[in-house]
Structure formats: C-alpha cells, structure tokens
Design a protein around this nucleic acid. Structure first.
Lengths: 134, 134
DNA sequence: CCTATATTTTACGTTAACGTAAATTATTAA
DNA sequence: TTAATAATTTACGTTAACGTAAAATATAGG
C-alpha cells in the first residue's frame, strides 16, 4: 500500500494478501469487468481506493453464494459509458430487488439457525441417554 | 406424494416438482450420501419424510453458498453406522461452529444491506440532480 | 393388457471460477 | 548495476455440480 498525492494505491499482491485470495482471482475479476485498475508506465496494475471497495463487495457477495455474474448485476459493471440516467435507473431497480433478496436470506438464515439449534438440542439429549451408563 | 400405513412417501419426481430441481440433482445428492431413499420391489426410489427434510436442508444450505461437502458436514452423512456416540459428538461440534458461522453471515448480510441502501441513497440523489433539468 | 409415462443406470458433456505453468518484462534492494 | 522478486500475458488443466442422451425396465391409466 502506497501513498502518492494524498491518494492510496495498492499493488495486486497487496490486495491478494489483504483479502487472502490469489492474484489470479483478482485478474479474473478484472476479466469479468468487475474491477478496472489503472496501469503504471511499466504496465503494472495499480488499484485505487475505489477498486479496493469494489473488491471487498465482490468477496462479500461471494460469501453469500452469489455468482460473479449476479455480483456484477448488484454492484454494476465498471464501464460506465452508457446513458448515465438509464444506467442509474437500472442499477437502482436491481438494487431494490437485491435488498429484498438479502432480507429474505437473513430470514432464512435465522430459520436455519433455529433448525440447527433445535437439532443440537435433540442430539444433546440422545448423547445424555447413551452416556448415562451407570 | 402417497400415504401408506400412516407414513408419507414421495417419488423422485414428487420431490423434483416440489423443490423445483431436477431428478438428476436428487440422484446426485444421493451419490454424495446426503440422502438415502429406500427402494420399491421394482427398484425405484421412495423418499420418506426424513429424506424430505434432509433435502430441504440441503437446498437451504446451497442458497447460502455452502458446497455439498460443507452441507454434509453440517447435516451429517446418511450412513450412520459408526460408533454412535462419537458420531453425535462430532456432529455437535460441527454444529456449534456452523451456528457461529451462520450468525456471522447474518451480521455480514445486515452490513451488505446497509451498504446497498446507502448506495441506493446516493444514486437517488445523483438521479435527482441529473433529471432536475428545468 | 397395452400404451404412454416414469424411473433406472451408465457415461460423456458443460460451465463457472479459478489453478498452474511458462516465457517475458518490471521493480526493488543490496 | 545486478540479482532476486514481482507482475504480465497466454494458454491449458481442474473441480464441483449438475445437464443430457441412450437403452432398459417399471408403473399407471384407459
């Protein structure tokens, strides 16, 4: 991580280390247009604060089982050269759906947690039965 | 879905229809030892209430991005012929970790939701700016 | 009983998301 | 400057989780 002109920059391995992923993955996300770092004179990638944020979002999405394609629908493509208003409208609509989706997931997770806790309870009982050999 | 001797049974396509997945997937989960239906005389699979429950758990797990392998760690293998006490202890320990994991996920999801909502807010503003052309 | 569906096994095909290796060029540290 | 690292592109390999097709058998409905 380096500072220059008050801005923060990262190399590809900075990010790889910080997020514990491979550089290959990072380049792969770029292939899929999820991030678009600038380049140095020598053609090496430099990641800005914005790229850093996007990468964090990508990984967060992945943890919830979203595919990269879905993630790109959520956080939007990086090439932002279409009609801006349309682009924003689309993104907003998408965002709404995703928020609803996420609320559902939160609910489902709570249910799953309940299931597991109750399952734990049953197993616990069973274990007590089995080990009560006195 | 059929009843017989007070028990409920499902054919493979019953489940496929109910859960909106392919029969291939269901057989695949069986290959991975996640479910183990009994068979009719004619060698066709019959799924019990227990199989139904397990399938629901499998699909729930998948929605959260768990791999089938992780899911099998959560809900346990179907062939339950090892030392039962050990088996239960293992399952309990696993379960604890998973519950913690799930609580983390719930938290993360809430954060993601916040992010998205605030992103929506910003986009909204931007849109207002752009369309305020009077 | 016969025909239309369902189901079974076997086996090869597919896609997403990287892993890995090789050859080349850049950057950093002594 | 030079040797050790780091990064780049290109391209083939891998794995999970099914899809799909074929050939044979089972079951259900008229």
């Amino acid at each position: 991580m380096k500072r220059q002109d008050k801005e923060i920059y990262y190399t590809i391995s900075d990010l790889a280390t910080e997020f514990d992923i491979s550089t290959r993955s990072i380049r792969f996300y770029e292939e899929k247009n999820l991030i678009s770092p600038r380049r140095t004179e020598g053609n090496q990638r430099i990641y800005s604060r914005r790229d850093h944020v996007r990468l964090k979002l990508i990984l967060r999405g992945k943890r919830f089982g979203y595919s990269l394609e879905e993630i790109s629908e959520i956080i939007g493509l990086t090439d932002f050269d279409l009609d801006e208003v349309e682009q924003i409208r689309k993104t907003l609509a998408m965002g709404q759906k995703k928020i609803i989706d996420i609320r559902e997931r939160i609910n489902d997770l709570k249910l799953l947690e309940e299931d597991l806790v109750s399952f734990q309870g049953k197993m616990d009982e069973r274990l007590k039965d089995l080990t009560a050999d006195e």
